[in-house]
Design a protein around this nucleic acid. Structure first.
Lengths: 181, 181
DNA sequence: ACCTGAACACCGTTCAAGT
DNA sequence: ACCTGAACACCGTTCAAGT
């Protein structure tokens, strides 16, 4: 990692930059061939640096997950339910920015670098949920997985049709109501 | 339609039969090439009978949608909220049987034969919702689109991970709570 | 060490050629 | 009238050959 050739490092950075753009345009299912093409790099070079799509996305989203984990810790100073709601709102915003991300996170198992990369975030969010539950403001029969699933589902809905994207805030309110009991 | 050649009619039926199997195995995104292959028919023949994937799926699901529409009419004789809940449960069951169907219905616009094919069903379900609202048992600020979106989202969740599929019933309960207010 | 791109095995879709 | 399958334009992934 430290003593790699200068051209290798340049290629790595270049691929990430281009991937950022392409994912912003086409979502997380964007063509890796196109990423290599736009980066002016051979297809094999892309695979050498990022053996799987998830590895590339993990490098792309690492900072995003860390930011969300940090946000959860900061919010934990405030009122329990409001903190949870605000955090979920930010998580949702991120999921809709990176089209298809909700699905990836939902299907990511231990073999995916994405899974490892967002564990700290999941943990921190879990604390927010637990605190809201202890305060008696959130049903005790919902767990972390339920909450992530529901909010991810909202992101999925918004991705399906622009008409539904307009109602995301409304649907988010319904889900919060459901969680509160 | 009536006076088509016997071989054409046989091919049409054969493709539908095979598609049923392949969709059951691989979901609505199954390879059309494989359908043609298994049906022992040229790829062009498949496209001649079903110009788009949606056209094939529409032929496959027409009966299913009609059944759901009929079920809605029958249930409308019973108690409003229970009727709505029971119907949504059946809709959800269908969406999880045909993997990927929830997404197709969500994205289907007027150009898709799937859209036309399930309009009667949507209409009948809308009546159930309206009745439950008139009875004051469902929030007045949710509409048909919201309800379909939320229940389709549950189907999406179940498709993502087997672990989550087990919790579908629980999540369905949460959504019903949200809708009741 | 690292990069390249051809090669392979798949898609969906179209259409000229056959019967 | 209908059927066939090659052709085209795409994928993801691997790997021999180059520097």
């Amino acid at each position: 990692m430290v003593n790699q050739r200068a051209d290798a490092r340049r290629n790595y950075e270049r691929i990430l930059e281009v991937a950022e753009d392409v994912v912003a345009e086409q979502g997380t299912q964007a063509s890796l061939r196109e990423v290599a093409r736009r980066a002016g790099v051979g297809l094999g070079t892309l695979y050498r640096h990022f053996p799987t799509r998830d590895a590339l996305l993990e490098a792309l989203l690492r900072q995003h997950f860390d930011d969300l984990a940090e946000a959860a810790r900061e919010l934990s100073a405030g009122p329990p339910v409001e903190a949870l709601e605000e955090w979920l709102r930010r998580f949702l915003a991120g999921s809709t920015t990176y089209r298809g991300l909700a699905q990836l996170l939902m299907t990511a198992d231990a073999s995916s670098p994405l899974d490892a990369s967002c564990q700290a975030m999941r943990e921190a969010a879990g604390q927010l949920l637990a605190r809201a539950q202890e305060a008696g403001h959130v049903r005790s029969d919902v767990d972390r997985t339920d909450v992530f699933a529901l909010v991810s589902a909202l992101s999925w809905i918004a991705e399906q049709a622009p008409a539904l994207a307009d109602r995301t805030e409304h649907l988010f309110g319904l889900v919060m109501t459901a969680i509160r009991g």
